[in-house]
Nucleic acid binder design. Structure first.
Lengths: 334, 334
DNA sequence: AGCGCAAACAGAAACGTTTCGGTTTTTGGG
DNA sequence: CCCAAAAACCGAAACGTTTCTGTTTGCGCT
């Protein structure tokens, strides 16, 4: 049905190799170039990338495996990555594994069968077993947000410890001493780092670390609400809370609203991620903001670099990016 | 490097056709089946889908073009679609066109070159010119959220007129008479429908349609905030506002907060989309909710149907789904 | 004009499948 | 046990590129 290079060759009287050379930036005599372009025009020819992929053994497609597309943090990063990769001719196959290790494993296998040229992964399984087979193919992997011990590859991270420290210090400066934290699941490295930042900073500030001020949420809205309720119940003297991801921040706000507790009069709050939400809250939330744009740039950049110089077994790099604080009105001056 | 079917054939002593038949559900004698499976195991063989794609002239990949991945409504739908398609062996290539017609056109061309088997599109360009060339290939197109006159294909829509009517009637029942609306851009059909629903219902309720109560936003947060400020300024007697998409709902809430106007004491609000946000607001927002899950199901379903019976030129179907109202506390009883 | 060299070209093979036409094996009924 | 029909199998050709190995062409010199 559709025209092929053979048709172009026949019509122009040129050889296959010449046509191919034309499409791959080779040198072609001016008059032949014209002939070819005419033929393309008339036959509505379009290179068949599938055939090309077979021959070159590359699909110009990158697989992306994330825990949850329906999550602003992920979505923002993906948008950025997709944009950059596409501008370099790479397509993006996204697999949402719903924060499920089993599904994550299947997603990687699926993409591997589709012969993607590389995989970008915000890992759920911190063991990294799901990547082992793919890595054997020698194709590049770039990890986002969480590093995995066993897997040697580039990663793009955020300085979570510092992020927590920044939040804590801000609350301290405003006079807060009894500061609670809604942390994440212990098996997630980012959650551990944020908690570590909290503990370290409390020590630095000579504040006692009280078990009752630490609650482990599950990174969901409901979990955030419940965690906030627990904190409030067990700590009558608590004046501020640091929440360590977006969903739980939302949950914490919901929880406080439902308990009828005013922000920041009764409880001050420092949230995490999602500027628009923080601005829409009343009062505006003070939050720790992650540089999603930069994460996307670095990630796509590292991937493209690996793809171009696939030969060189360059050292793996680990980027660590800084968070920033966006000031709202959710912290009371004591 | 990697094993091919030829290797399997050699190792088992069988012919190529038999191996192929094994992989495509054909009948193979028990002992041969065993031999093949052993060989696969030992050689770590995996079907090369690229070669298969070339031969079968199908990529088992669907292109998805949306205005903005970083938008809950889109993201929720995409997640659902991706999930269903993947479970049927189809990969999903997502292109975010940033609500730009030019980029949308390029995205479709990009996917077309990648030889996707079909395209799912939440269109930005309501003329549909960007789809013309792709449609000539005879491959299926499914439109979401917005229909296009010139393009004959399946579409999955939402009953926007009814959605607006529901919101209006609810406000009316609570005693509101001076009801403003923050509409969307006039060139977007969903926005027109929602506005039409507003006008029609106002008439039905014998309420005068005042120009000053109608503001056209641009579907962004900033636009929502500005629109709300305009409405408040020009309508001192206005007691309620209906906002017609999620971003502008967020913006409207921000705007009211910044003006120091209490919800619902001074102004009642009916928002649109995104349940979690609505619940996190104080007070909880009453919103019109779109059935994203169902939209995803219908869309993926229609696409799969077309792909299976690609021969039959069945009538195109247009699904129209119902919205629902989620009750919060953002409407005052007058 | 004739020479040599580089640039441009041509043809065939290869990438790893599926499929077509034809051959062998198996099966079961008499 | 034989034979026909059915089931299973085989090898070659094809899908539309890229690339390898040569061959031709064009160009600048003398």
């Amino acid at each position: 049905m559709a025209a092929t290079m053979k048709d172009i060759a026949k019509r122009t009287g040129l050889g296959l190799a010449t046509i191919s050379s034309y499409f791959n930036g080779g040198n072609v005599r001016e008059k032949n170039r014209k002939k070819i372009e005419e033929a393309i025009e008339e036959l509505h020819y379009e290179v068949n990338e599938v055939a090309r992929n077979l021959k070159t053994n590359a699909t110009k497609t990158i697989g992306v495996v994330i825990p949850e597309l329906n999550n602003t943090f992920c979505a923002e990063i993906i948008t950025g990555i997709e944009d950059i990769l596409r501008s370099h001719g790479y397509a993006t196959m996204i697999c949402d594994c719903r924060t499920d290790k089993q599904l994550e494993q299947e997603a990687v296998e699926f993409l591997s069968r589709k012969r993607v040229d590389g995989i970008i992964n915000m890992p759920v399984d911190t063991e990294g077993g799901h990547l082992k087979d793919f890595q054997k193919t020698g194709k590049p992997i770039v990890l986002i947000d969480r590093k995995i011990q066993g897997v040697v590859c580039d990663s793009v991270l955020v300085d979570n410890e510092q992020a927590a420290a920044d939040a804590l210090k801000l609350l301290y400066e405003k006079g807060h001493r009894n500061i609670g934290i809604i942390g994440g699941p212990e098996e997630i490295s980012t959650a551990r780092e944020r908690l570590k930042g909290y503990c370290r900073t409390m020590e630095e500030l000579n504040l006692p670390i009280r078990e009752s001020l630490i609650v482990h949420g599950d990174y969901t809205i409901q979990g955030g609400a419940k965690a906030m309720e627990t904190l409030v119940e067990n700590n009558p003297d608590m004046t501020a809370v640091f929440v360590t991801n977006y969903e739980m921040t939302m949950g914490a706000v919901i929880g406080l609203n439902e308990l009828g507790i005013r922000i920041p009069e009764r409880i001050s709050l420092v949230g995490f991620d999602n500027l628009p939400f923080a601005r829409a809250c009343n009062p505006k939330l003070t939050i720790v903001s992650q540089p999603t744009e930069k994460i996307a740039e670095k990630t796509a950049g590292l991937m493209l670099e690996r793809l171009e110089n696939s030969g060189s077994a360059a050292e793996t790099t680990t980027e660590k990016l800084e968070t920033s604080i966006i000031y709202g009105k959710s912290i009371a001056q004591l």
